[in-house]
Design a protein around this nucleic acid. Structure first.
Lengths: 191, 191
DNA sequence: TTGATTTTAAGATGGTCATCTTATATTATT
DNA sequence: AATAATATAAGATGACCATCTTAAAATCAA
């Protein structure tokens, strides 16, 4: 029990440190040595927890999705109106301003990288988008019951993705704030 | 003269084949062996034309920018109104639909990749954006003389970047067409 | 406590990478 | 034709990579 538990703990610890590493370096420049060093686990021992690099990625994505779901669950409980919930989503880049202007969007940059020649892994990464999209559709359904909620959700996601790409390219924080304001104005215009 | 010329020709040939390779594989997964194979030049000989991989990248970006400038110049001549010129720009993803849904935006995907931990190279790549932005600003200046042309240009670029990211992630051509229509409607609303 | 199982972690393996050296071949100049 | 400069291309170099093997150590169940 204790050992099983400890193993799980270390595995979880590797996942959490790799999450940051993946965001900061990208998948292809992130080596097993990097993972081992970041998690402070001997290089040869990582393979006891994960057989391949792909398996590490999958575990990190699963972890991210868990986190996202928990966050969205909290928003559902704590934020009363769909408009306010959509605005809460929209404001992620403002809240994560340092990271977004430095490393871009963790979902978008990974999808872009993997989409070139690692499509199987991209499909894994894409589940992050799916998780948000499902939630966004629900909010839009509440906000504008007879709008095309799928298109609206995609559109909002697209706006935040474009924002992140340019924000990172130009290290431009004011661009983030300005574009987020436009998005909020657009959301207001829907009701 | 002939030799100098032939050398220039081979160098140019390497640049052009590497342009596609870079788009399809990304910078870090593109090796010198790939470059040599694609250009059909012996691996060891590539170094006669380019000392480092960074130098190849720089040459490819310069070539791309030349191409872009020539294209924009043609548009300036052949398309009468700034609105139509802006729409011509907007329609690039529709014209390049196959490539955009498969590999994303050549500028955006490269910037995103290099921005993580190769900032010096990202600065080189970013010049592609700059070239478009300068031109876009001019068009907006003509279209809405007292608008904030810098913000408008950035905004339009941002829309196309978000579009490319999602189009590639979901391999979704209808998304491209739909979003391009929105952008055109927005452009119309400015006059 | 003993024997089985789990966990650790060093070290190999075989591959690919960017880059360099160098000897040979080609071409240009005289 | 002789010489000098340019261009070719094989082969090394050393670093790093993902992954595997394996023997020792730690922990478990009996």
């Amino acid at each position: 029990m204790v050992a099983r538990n400890k193993t799980e703990q270390i595995r979880q610890h590797i996942i959490e440190t790799t999450d940051d590493l993946l965001y900061h370096k990208g998948f292809n420049l992130m080596s097993f040595s990097d993972i081992a060093a970041a998690a402070d686990v001997p290089r040869g021992n990582i393979y006891y927890y994960f057989k391949t690099k792909d398996e590490v990625l999958t575990a990190v994505i699963e972890y991210r999705i868990e986190q996202m779901r928990a966050m969205l669950e909290t928003w559902n409980e704590e934020i009363k109106t769909p408009l306010e919930r959509l605005k809460r989503y929209t404001n992620i880049p403002v809240i994560e301003l340092e990271d977004v202007t430095r490393y871009g969007c963790p979902m978008g940059s990974l999808n872009t990288e993997l989409g070139k020649s690692q499509r199987t892994l991209q499909a894994v990464s894409r589940k992050q988008y799916d998780t948000f999209l499902t939630w966004l559709k629900k909010q839009f359904k509440e906000l504008v019951p007879d709008g095309n909620t799928k298109h609206l959700a995609m559109h909002l996601l697209m706006l935040t993705q474009g924002l992140a790409v340019l924000a990172q390219s130009y290290q431009d924080k004011s661009l983030v704030r300005r574009e987020i304001n436009y998005i909020e104005t657009w959301l207001d215009s829907l009701v």
